Simulated scan of single mutants.
Amino acid sequence: MTVTHPVGAEEVVLGGGRSPAPPDRPPATGTAARLTRPLPALLLVGLLAAGWQLMAHTSDSALIPGLGDIARNLADITTSGALGENVRVTLTRVTLGFAAAFVVSVAAGIAMGRSEWLRRFLEPAVLIGLATPGLVKALLCVIWFGVSLVNPVLTVALAAAPALTINIAQGVRAVDPALGEMAHVYRLDALTRLRYLWLPAIVPDLFTGARLGIAMAWKVIVLVEIFGLADGVGYQLNLEFSQHNVAGVLAWTVAFALVMAAIEYGLLQTLERRAVRWRRVALR
């Protein structure tokens, strides 16, 4: 008598009678896990701060101020209100520019991923955008648009759009063609396909492109504010530099880094966890 064992649905799908690999374990969500999650990043920051303080102490140079001088400058710009006002101005410019880049990039990326002809048509523009230094974009926008709001918004859009577009296009090309055929069979309109097919499928690529785009946006907005504007974090950096206040330059730099960290850990990672929550649920 031959002894057999029941074959699960997962084995049928995978073929070969082999059991499927265990799914990725969802990240721990307990209180202890939430408290210990930032420890590696805090350890790195602590090591960098200790290394800087050691370098400042051994060099004894005004060009390398200690952590105390930087902290005093940071406290001064915070209590005076300069930090909040200039960060608000810079964030507004970055938000408007990135929003414009996002709309254009989603449309262009999906088009490039769906059509080979459009990919070949738009790819040179995307590659040129990636290869052009942010300094060149900032200078040209300052020359063409002066101190108007169009200047920083367009510069940020030009800096963020290429990385976002190419990541979205790659994500669309990786989508299972059967999903597109199903949408065609059921005659789904373009808006329904965008909402229920393309956007959920390209979420990881979308967030990867968003991170690269925002990183480029931060770099060029500082250059624009240094060269052609009279407010913002970049303008304050240039002002401290003109006064030979290295501690002030570093204080604004630290404040800028804290804002970027808050956006990454407080906004982008939170949105990404919620956007891909259905994937983790499906793996359980």
Rank of each mutant, 00 (worst) to 15 (best):
N151F: 03
C141L: 13
V156A: 07
V185D: 04
T165E: 03
G134R: 00
L154M: 13
L135G: 02
A160D: 04
V172Q: 08
A183L: 07
V172I: 15
L191W: 12
A178V: 14
A183H: 06
A190S: 12
A160K: 06
L164C: 11
A138K: 01
L194F: 14
V150E: 10
V156L: 10
L135V: 15
N151V: 09
G171I: 08
S148F: 04
Q170P: 00
E181L: 15
A178M: 11
K137A: 08
G134V: 05
T132D: 02
L149I: 12
K137T: 13
P177W: 09
A163F: 14
V150A: 15
V175R: 06
L135S: 04
A138Q: 02
V156Y: 04
T192W: 00
R173Q: 15
R193D: 03
V175N: 09
R187A: 15
A174T: 06
G134F: 06
I143S: 04
E181H: 12
I166E: 04
A160Q: 07
P152N: 09
G171P: 07
I168C: 06
V185P: 00
A169T: 10
L194V: 13
L140Y: 03
V185L: 14
M182S: 11
P177G: 11
Q170M: 12
L154E: 01
I168Y: 07
